[in-house]
Design a protein around this nucleic acid. Structure first.
Length: 857
RNA sequence: GCCCGGGUGGCGGAAUUGGUAGACGCGCUAGAUUUAGGAUCUAGUGUCGAAAGGCGUGGGGGUUCGAGUCCCCCCCCGGGCACCA
């Protein structure tokens, strides 16, 4: 029994095999291969100073199991890792301590890499990428220049969230409940010059593309809702006493006859013209008050509608009626035309407003079989037109297109589509991000650039991008790709400038350059202007890109991480395509996943890529909660550190337990006792493998053992394909429990077990594989195949039910016929006790499974 | 408010073309081994009941020979959206 005393020394084993894999380059992905490819991608982490927490590896383990499984199935597998390393925390740390963010980032990356390596992933580390590496971000900049060239980038003054504490501008999505998502500081509205990407131009493509994706439905729905497509009409209402008209957007042109007032947003350009002099004071006060409210306040105050009558009227194009025009902040300038026709009878918001201000509520649709309850106003449902002249009696739904046609014929309206999706504010007034590769020049120099034969000519968009600066209009010129990367300059102070501009605005030797209109080269204006004709003074763009930028295309760079000539080599892209599996948190359902789709589709349209969609199959792993059932957080003190877990139980136990916790997509709590359970299981496997007396190499395992084994092969294989790793592990436990109970079995049975276990607990599987006398590495072994013929036994158990309740069972040959089984059931003593004094009204037989006797009396 | 997802033992969870509910693990109980502890092994463990048997998958109703699974109503938890005309 000496061999049983040998401990499961996971620390030594895990170190040994991690070194082996690294030495042997076991997980290098081959760019040239006859094998089919499999590309498993994790959402790459932001390397924070806190290090990895227990939630990170959950997705990585899942993708790693798939990667190792696919490798065993004969695929050429790519499982890469990298760092989404631009971001606010490193910059905040720099502001506090003066440490350059690149140093902080480097230290954090080193720590993350060490931690990830300690879990034993099948990662090809030669492909590691880092978004802050100029070799990487030159391509992020390159993509931006393409967008700029195609007119998809522009500059605009936009109200943005400004956080005084962070001294930074935040995107809408970085603000939660009026506080910054990072640090929970208060935020306020400020108008600042922003670089904006025209993602709205891709609204339709982004929407349509969703249909073909193997994504969680909830994520698709969220993206659909975010894009928010609606169909309706733009209708022109002539302004009474003016040659101008007010255009409204409505999804309910069928309710035009019920429009009893109109509303323009406080920011509407025609408002001034609409306000009559005696209302001016009141309206001005209202507009001013509205301007002070952020969108958020407006929503908060949504309980009570407010507004002011402008004194003007419009003419309803369908019936010539005069309709009063109001201004109210429940109409948003940023959606549709910023003006609406209000139909209080059929819209809840308009109803509320009309009631408050005593405006007429006129029904134009009735429910066909409507009783009073159904027809209560406001009534937003379908029905039949009334009070609508020639349209009366028509179905309202059908009437929509009819009215649109009639409006078009009369030149007072047209069918229209609207989206909730807004353009993407792409600039951040920060240091630690990719510099935006634009320079600003005068109109004169801009015209010269367009007329100069050189690298710039074709890179300039059709429509000039301009901005106002100190009463001067400046024009944007792109850097040519040959001038990339545009590196981040060194800076002494990481604080944003007082005006809310990026720290880059304070570095004049970087900011102010001589720019060559022919070559696109630039030289600091601290130097004398170089010789030659085409040098002009220019100012660099000081905004940097948001953290989303680098993650929009990283899946492509893994395919060809070191290419200095191209973003990705065509041939390599043709071979690898996109990820076959992409896993990451559901919190990225909209933003990252929408932005990445936008860039990918754009690059596809530009002919850079062969496929329009980046992520064919997507999965969201569920959150791992603390042992107390709360979200892990430092302040609650329930954070579990993977380093500690690995120290105590080993990486294999960590991997196995993260998968055993429950369904991959579920939110589930961590459990210290639970990891002991899977650790015990691994020890059991270890022990079984070190019992040579139980192994026989000559004989086959018993029929029963073979059945359990092949059942396990089948179930584990199916479970891996379905991402139900918890079920796969349960089945392996059943097999090991069985082996432990019997006296002897074939050593081949054990080897198959190790192969099944290898994707889950790779270190132990390698070690025991070697112990059993096989050559490493187990990862190169072909995946076992289940012999289904072994799963069918000659005998079947058939259960007996009376009125659907289990009352007995019997063993039968699998060829047994219905009548024999039913007779046997009726003959069963226990069954008889339930039949006594009753009449059998129905006999159900499910072949090979059950008999059910329905009785009454 | 609207749109999703989910409620199964003391706990994490298995089981859906409707067919033995609670696999597997944790915890717990008893026993074996051990100087002891730990580790390991054996047996038990939904609930009520002495047993026979009854009850049981958030609650109520329905379809069916048979419902965790299908249909209707309601409750609770989680997530997303939120004046989008």
């Amino acid at each position: 029994m000496a061999e049983e005393e040998q401990n499961y020394d996971f620390s030594t084993i895990e170190k040994k095999w991690q070194d082996f894999w690294e030495r042997e380059n076991t997980f290098r992905a081959e760019d040239q291969s006859d094998k089919p490819k499999y590309y498993a991608l994790d959402m790459f982490p932001y390397p924070s100073g806190a290090g990895l927490h227990i939630g990170h590896p959950e997705g990585y383990v899942a993708s790693d199991i798939l990667a190792r499984y696919k490798k065993a199935c004969g695929f050429n597998v790519l499982h890469p890792m990298g760092w989404d390393a631009f971001g606010l925390p490193a910059e905040q740390y720099a502001i506090k301590t003066g440490t350059h963010p690149s140093l902080t980032t480097q230290a954090n990356v080193d720590n993350f890499r060490r931690q990830i390596k300690s879990i034993g992933f099948a990662i090809d580390w030669e492909r590691e990428i880092n978004t802050t590496d100029p070799e990487y971000y030159q391509w992020t900049q390159w993509i931006f220049l393409k967008l700029f060239q195609r007119g998809l980038a522009y500059v605009d003054e936009k109200p943005v969230w400004w956080c005084p504490n962070l001294r930074a501008v935040l995107a809408n999505e970085e603000v939660v409940d009026g506080k910054s998502e990072v640090g929970n500081h208060p935020v306020e509205r400020r108008n600042l010059r922003q670089v904006v990407l025209r993602i709205t131009a891709y609204a339709e493509k982004l929407l349509a593309g969703l249909d073909d994706l193997d994504w969680p439905d909830s994520t698709k729905r969220q993206q659909k809702a975010w894009i928010g497509r609606s169909e309706g009409a733009e209708v022109q209402f002539a302004i009474d006493g003016s040659t101008d008209h007010l255009t409204v957007y409505t999804t309910r042109p069928d309710t035009l006859f019920g429009a009893t007032y109109m509303v323009v947003a406080p920011e509407h350009p025609l408002l001034d013209q609409l306000v009559v002099s005696e209302k001016k004071e009141e309206v001005d006060a209202y507009v001013l008050a509205a301007a002070k409210k952020s969108d958020l306040d407006r929503t908060d105050l949504a309980k009570e509608k407010s507004g002011v009558f402008t004194g003007s009227h419009c003419i309803n194009p369908v019936n010539g009626e005069k309709v009063p025009v109001w201004v109210a902040d429940y109409v948003l300038i940023s959606y549709g035309t910023g003006a609406i026709m209000a139909v209080p009878a059929h819209d809840e918001r308009d109803f509320e407003f009309a009631q408050k201000f005593g405006i007429e509520i006129r029904r134009v649709i009735v429910h066909p079989e409507g009783n009073d309850e159904i027809n209560e106003l406001p009534y937003p449902g379908p029905g039949v037109m009334v009070n609508s002249k020639e349209y009366d009696g028509m179905a309202a739904d059908a009437c929509k297109s009819k009215i649109i046609q009639d409006l078009e014929a009369g030149g007072t309206g047209k069918g229209a589509v609207n989206y909730k999706l807004r353009d993407w504010i792409f600039s951040r007034q920060r240091y630690w991000g990719e510099p935006i590769p634009l320079v600003w020049v005068s109109l004169n120099d801009y015209e010269r650039a367009k007329a100069t034969d050189g690298v710039l000519k074709d890179l300039i968009p059709e429509k000039a991008v301009t901005t106002d600066k100190e009463d001067q209009v400046l024009y944007a010129l792109p850097l040519p790709p040959s001038e990339l990367p545009l590196r981040l300059p060194e800076v002494e102070n990481y604080q944003p400038s007082g005006t809310g501009e990026s720290p880059l605005a304070t570095i004049s030797e970087w900011l102010e350059v001589w720019f060559n209109l022919e070559s696109g080269k630039s030289v600091s204006r601290t130097e004398p202007m170089p010789e030659g004709d085409n040098w002009v003074p220019a100012t660099r763009e000081t905004n940097t890109m948001p953290q989303w930028a680098g993650s929009c295309w990283y899946h492509l760079r893994y395919i060809d991480p070191k290419n200095p000539e191209l973003l990705v080599d065509k041939q390599k892209e043709a071979y690898w395509g996109g990820p076959d599996f992409y896993i990451g948190g559901a919190e990225h359902a909209v933003l990252h996943l929408l932005y990445a789709r936008f860039w990918h589709r754009f690059l596809y349209d530009e002919g850079v890529l062969a496929n329009p969609e980046p992520y064919k199959k997507l999965f969201h792993q569920g959150l791992i909660l603390g042992e107390d059932g709360n979200k892990m957080s430092k302040s609650v003190g329930n954070v579990v550190n993977p380093d500690v877990v690995i120290d105590a139980y080993g990486a294999d136990s960590l991997r196995l337990f993260e998968m055993f916790l429950g369904p991959l997509e579920a939110v589930k709590p961590w459990s210290e006792k639970g990891i002991e359970g899977v650790h015990r299981f691994l020890r059991k496997v270890h022990r079984e493998c070190l019992r040579p007396k139980k192994h026989n190499s000559a004989e086959e395992s018993s029929k029963e053992t073979l059945k359990v084994l092949h059942e396990t092969i089948l179930k584990v294989t199916e479970a891996i394909e379905d991402l139900r790793f918890n079920v796969a592990i349960s089945q392996m436990m059943i097999l090991v429990n069985h082996l432990q109970k019997i006296d002897s079995y074939s050593i081949d049975t054990l080897k198959v077990l190790l192969q099944l276990l290898a994707p889950f607990a790779p270190h132990l599987a390698e070690e025991l594989w070697e112990t059993l006398g096989s050559q490493p590495s187990i990862v190169n072994q072909p995946w076992p195949e289940a012999r289904k013929e072994l799963l069918v036994s000659d005998e079947v158990t058939i259960v007996f039910q009376v009125n659907g309740k289990l009352r007995g069972q019997g063993q039968f040959s699998k060829e047994i016929d219905k009548d024999s089984v039913i007779s046997a059931a009726k003959a069963d003593a226990k069954i008889q006790s339930f039949l006594e004094g009753k009449e059998i009204v129905k006999e159900i037989y499910v072949p090979g499974k059950l008999v059910n006797l329905a009785v009454k009396g």
